[in-house]
Design a protein around this nucleic acid. Sequence first.
DNA 1: ATAGTTATTGATAATGATTTTCATTACCGA
DNA 2: TCGGTAATGAAAATCATTATCAATAACTAT
Lengths: 138, 138
Amino acid sequence: MSAETWLAQLHENGYRITAARRAVVEMVAKSTHALTPLEVYDLGRKKYRALGLVTVYRTLEKLEELHLIQRVHQPMGCQAFISMGQGHQHLLLCQNCGQAEYFEGDDLEALTKSISKKTGYQINEHWLQLFGLCANCR
Amino acid sequence: MSAETWLAQLHENGYRITAARRAVVEMVAKSTHALTPLEVYDLGRKKYRALGLVTVYRTLEKLEELHLIQRVHQPMGCQAFISMGQGHQHLLLCQNCGQAEYFEGDDLEALTKSISKKTGYQINEHWLQLFGLCANCR
DNA sequence: ATAGTTATTGATAATGATTTTCATTACCGA
DNA sequence: TCGGTAATGAAAATCATTATCAATAACTAT
């Protein structure tokens, strides 16, 4: 999804389009890596000098709220965000360069049914994430 | 696994057995919930008044290093730890009460093969976590 | 059992990340 | 163009985690 689409989404939800938000949105939307708030700040300031770190936090918060980005959980930390995938997709992360890719086609129906029977749980959600080396790094 | 086993593991690895460590280990080993350092601190002080928060952090660090506990990733935060499962197991968490349970039997072989072919990634690891309501809460 | 070495401790301070506050700025609908 | 008000950035406050350090206590060798 493009930066323009994100800005339109923000606008539709009653948020104003500002230079600071443009800078943040542009950087996050086009990144193929998960970015921490500080990384967004550094990148964003290349587009918009006056950008403040606080605004980065606030903008990321709104983007997450609108499901345009999601938090990425990694062994080293969980503060990084990345553009949300389309529909039901999961992340595949390169352990070397950090490159992220979405994939779909996980069928856990059989598994969750069996676990549900065994444990008595009603299963509502699942998190799946794959780690490895991307084509360049392997 | 019992608290005594954990203490033995610590000892085998050259760490001393202290009252503070006993308190931490005992609480974490018997908990069916993931606990944050602060929660471990509060619980631990019931066993050992003089326990310090810093020691909790340091002890959790060692337990993680020995693979006796693992960090649990949840939407609300990733600072909580829980006793490690046996062998290759994944977590099932109750969204209402926080109760945690391990399950095994995930077979992602077919999935990872197919993703690997599609993306060119060499897949090394996977994270899977299920969320739902436990038998009591549903 | 005892003593001595040294890992461990808890209190305090330092750090780092995130949130709150607030006066100023600038977006955008009329 | 204008005015109401959302949004901003700087600074301060808060919260979690880590480092420092002198005092303590666990364990090893005697």
